[in-house]
Design a protein around this nucleic acid. Structure first.
Lengths: 137, 137
DNA sequence: GTTTGTGCAAATATTTTGCACTTGA
DNA sequence: TCAAGTGCAAAATATTTGCACAAAC
């Protein structure tokens, strides 16, 4: 467990932290809130936002913005990460081995004189099933 | 794909395009709207948004998200779709030509049976200057 | 017991959209 | 002419905040 300042330990924070761990990948506050509610761990949306904000301030999570402006959070990973291909419609997720991209990112960063280069790569599309049924969310 | 034939030339679009050129750097829709109003070129906020969206669709401008979720636009220097390498400390941005990544993303999507595949690729690091001065923001 | 966190709802902020009215080709 | 564009305001989203209540230490 990481040291997280003088913060109080509450059921809600543990739940958010656990949900982030369970997800493993970038999740929006809304997604986490829904996930928690589905699991029976009721946590207010505002509390989810506040908790994520603190975690981000403390550097315990990565924060990103999706193309449509939603903030997504991920527990900082110690080891190497992988990427995902996510269906816009049903949320189905495929894990990707992206060795080629890892190499590309590192090389580009070095070429530009940047250090501690991290990268974010996410693919979004419509999976075959959703395309056929023309389903929308 | 790039469908510019269906677009009408209007005073408003010229004004937005000119404002982008005048700014030279990343500007939010709100900033551009204010700038246009200040210059006496009244353009509705919705029109600014719609115009920027089209320009982005056509690949004529870069779109980025600031840390607080605002979309900012800049006239592309190359006119091609590309990605960014952003310094965590000073925000300096380097445009990347990522043909390799584009291909990889498209191929992976097709392999998995996904259509309309879009992708998000952003690199973050610490640029040489910030590393040397150990600057923080 | 005091300090900090939580939930709810209302408030912000940004961006999108419906619709009647213009306008450019 | 007339499809395409525009402005306005209302709606949709995502996130923040004020405040009374509850919980952790």
């Amino acid at each position: 467990m990481t040291e997280r300042g003088g913060r109080i330990q509450t059921r809600q924070r543990s739940a958010v932290w656990a949900a982030l761990e369970a997800a493993g990948e970038f999740q929006s506050a809304q997604q986490l809130h829904a996930r928690l509610r589905a699991d029976g761990d009721g946590v207010g949306l505002a509390t989810v936002y506040r908790t994520l904000q603190q975690l981000a301030d403390d550097g315990d999570v990565d924060v990103l913005r999706t193309a449509d402006g939603e903030a997504v959070y991920r527990r900082c990973s110690t080891g190497r990460h992988h990427h995902h291909l996510v269906c816009r419609s049903c949320g189905r997720t495929v894990e990707l081995d992206a060795a080629a991209v890892e190499q590309w990112a590192r090389r580009i960063g070095e070429e530009q004189g940047f250090s501690d280069v991290d990268h974010v790569v996410e693919l979004f599309g419509t999976c075959r099933e959703c395309k056929e049924t023309d389903r929308h969310i």
